[in-house]
Design a protein around this nucleic acid. Structure first.
Lengths: 344, 344
DNA sequence: TTGAAAGCGCTAACAC
DNA sequence: GTGTTAGCGCTTTCAA
């Protein structure tokens, strides 16, 4: 910076003021400084700046993996959003329990970020309270934590509308397919099940535990097995509501392999509006991970800049049913169902 | 840090030495300092440290999106790798041309990272040379740039082996399906086409331009259209080599919709070993994005720590053919082909 | 509107 | 093995 100051014939203070865009610099000097900076390829060292301002200009993001549609979409939206606010994005990838323990033990983000975004973890009480005294706003994304700022989709309401959609089509025997990932049940999973149950209850349909089946995911044959349970019931379902689209697609494939027409003999509904949903013409309950990412970023910004902001605010994002070709009225084959015939 | 020093009854230098793990601290003092640090929840400010060491302790990563299997896997491996080396990961997401221009205009990573990893961009000469005077090692990942450190899979060799596999199965009419994404042809695309052509040439088979078809991707009906071209040739292919697995899966679905048996009447080969490949039992040429990510991180580390290291080194990672159920010998139905029958 | 000087929190060089 | 001191590159008073 001293070089720039010398070249422009001003003090470092003036260079600093110019580069920060303060209006207290006369136009001619500003021009001189900017040119000098350009000629010397000078860029501010945020680290030196943060030392004196006390702000790091960085948002930390904690994720367990990036290898999913949800994470990919959310971060692809969060990144540019933060960049627009001139914030750096510091990524912590914590794929297993060991690394997770290490993260919470050392909390490397401490003093190195202005806020932390925690994505889709199911944190223990202990972990949550550990984050409480991190000395920065912590935003919980895609999960709700009482008393802490959170951003998420209302999975209960989403599953409720999805199930209502099936009910409105005349289905009464509706199965719910839980897909358990490597890390055990997720938060969304139980919320979605809850919405399903609520819808049945409000329709006066008694809950039948046999209609709720669980399969490991991803697992090539697990879905077929789960389906087998349903199809061998005394009164099999006429519709399957899968916890997420990928499980729904696996269901469709298993059904077609068993020569069971979708949606003629079985309606299938997913959740997420994952890209495969469009590909398979799957009816689904859509959520928008990019909205989640962006909204979380905006909340972070607000909490950073405004210490009076509500530090327990929950932002609940909407979901909506997208009827496509895999749900149809009960016992009443539709023309749109025939487009599907013979297609894999 | 002063607080910790006071609490432990030592100087800040000793605290610094202890926390950095230097061996020049006596065990008893070390214990005192560590306890004091723990009690005060003290963590080093990397930003203050970097000011004096000149190292930022950060690796910057430039990506255009995170929303792909490749990026997700690569970063999910890179993250923990960097963490193990006690480096922060600073992510720059540059989804469109405007943001890209802004990035190269301002180069926000300048002075704020020790190295830059550029993922899967097709950079212009100008952009590359702009990065040259960034003052830090720049590693090109999943692309090769002459004279700069690069990490990538040998797409030519991969496509060569893939095509040879089809040739060895007796196929002589082999189509190549190019899948053009939103951003136009990618580097890999043309390399893979080249490998395909090389294999045919070495087998003494003249190149037939009609066998190379192009489809937009993702596009629900594009693949069927491209397939239509192939199937209406005077001498249709008996095998299709798709540029990547997702296009291969689309091809399989289009073929099955048209009642053309895979692999009985048409072999289909993909590239990548994307998760869908396993799901669809798709034969493919496998690459490992996580290896790419990890290797790139290791190279970055080497270039950061050893200024004598070769700054033009290209690391080429292997790919290998994984035969699954979608490729079979020409005109000679196999038992493994029958497993497929009736399955969607 | 600009400059001089102090100091952010840390590490490194040197002395003990 | 430990403490003292100087200074990394910035921003921020404060004075001019």
């Amino acid at each position: 910076m001293a070089d720039v100051a010398e070249r422009a014939g001003v003090s470092t203070s003036t260079v600093s003021r110019t580069l920060r865009g303060l209006s207290t610099v006369s136009p001619e000097i500003r021009a001189r400084v900017e040119q000098a900076a350009r000629e010397l390829d000078f860029a501010i060292s945020r680290r030196a700046a943060s030392l004196v301002t006390g702000k790091t200009g960085t948002v930390a993001v904690l994720v367990c993996t990036l290898n999913s549609w949800f994470m990919g979409s959310a971060l692809s939206a969060l990144g540019p959003m933060l960049r627009a606010a001139d914030l750096e994005l510091n990524l912590y990838v914590v794929p297993d329990m060991a690394e997770r323990a290490a993260f919470f033990e050392r909390l490397p983000a401490r003093r190195n970020a202005d806020a932390l975004l925690v994505f889709s973890f199911d944190l223990t009480e202990e972990e949550t309270s550990r984050l409480d005294d991190l000395g920065m706003p912590v935003i919980y994304v895609s999960q709700h934590v009482d008393g802490r700022p959170s951003v998420y989709v209302d999975d209960v309401a989403g599953a409720l509308s999805g199930t209502r959609h099936l009910l409105n089509l005349g289905h009464r025997r509706i199965a719910f397919l839980q897909a358990v990932g490597d890390s055990g049940f997720s938060f969304s999973s139980s919320e979605r099940l809850l919405g399903y149950q609520q819808a049945l209850t409000e329709a006066g349909i008694p809950l039948d535990e046999d209609l709720v089946v669980t399969t490991p995911f991803p697992d090539k044959h697990g879905t077929a097995r789960a389906l087998g349970q349903l199809l061998s019931l005394r009164e099999p379902p006429t519709a399957v509501f899968a916890e997420h689209d990928e499980a729904a697609v696996a269901t469709i494939r298993a059904l077609r392999a068993a020569q069971i027409g979708v949606p003629e003999q079985m309606s299938v509904l997913g959740f997420d509006d994952h890209p495969v949903a469009d590909l398979f013409d799957l009816s689904t309950v859509a959520q928008s991970p990019s909205d989640i990412g962006r909204t979380a970023g905006e909340l972070a910004l607000r909490l950073i800049n405004d210490s009076d902001a509500d530090h327990a605010q929950h932002i609940v994002l909407p979901s909506h049913v997208i009827p496509r070709a895999t749900t149809a009225p009960l016992l009443q084959p539709q023309s749109r169902g025939q487009e599907q015939t013979g297609s894999p």
